[in-house]
């Protein structure tokens, strides 16, 4: 069965979609990614769609699902490199991918993920501080 490779890079998972997606492939990707997130306890998922020329409502939904499912497992999702024509079409279709972070390219996407995770860590530290106080 066709599968899209998922790369692990530190705390992040990296997916580059190089072919036009059909439904089965997209569903496989959703499954594989979520399994990987839970297995590796990844903190972020980066999906590069710069080579994808068509995103319809089904694939848009898959991207949204991946983001929501990852979030439940404490991982942020960023979709990078969407082509202008695809963005215009999605907006016209009425699909704005709420809840999915976006970035221009892989580099900026990585930066965004690092910031998000940094912020999350910061928030956790802030949260723990008062607990320490009560211990004293």
């Amino acid at each position: 069965m066709d599968r899209i490779p998922i790369l692990k890079m530190g705390p992040f998972l990296l997916v580059t979609i190089q072919v036009d997606l059909y439904d089965r492939l997209a569903l496989n990707l959703e499954n594989d990614l979520i399994t990987m997130v839970s297995k590796t306890e990844a903190k972020g998922v980066l999906i590069d769609i710069s080579a994808v020329s068509i995103v319809d409502s089904f694939m848009g939904r898959i991207l949204g699902n991946i983001a929501s499912m990852s979030r439940i497992m404490d991982a942020e999702t960023v979709v990078v490199g969407m082509q202008p024509a695809v963005a215009i079409t999605l907006v016209e279709l009425g699909l704005t991918l709420q809840g999915v972070h976006t970035a221009l390219n892989v580099e900026k996407g990585m930066e965004l993920l690092q910031n998000k995770i940094g912020l999350n860590l910061l928030n956790q530290e802030e949260y723990q501080e008062p607990a320490d106080d009560t211990d004293l």
Partner: peptide
């Protein structure tokens, strides 16, 4: 609003 949404989808 459409223009803003499309820009956001691109990551800007």
């Amino acid at each position: 609003i459409k223009t803003v949404s499309a820009t956001r989808l691109m990551g800007a």
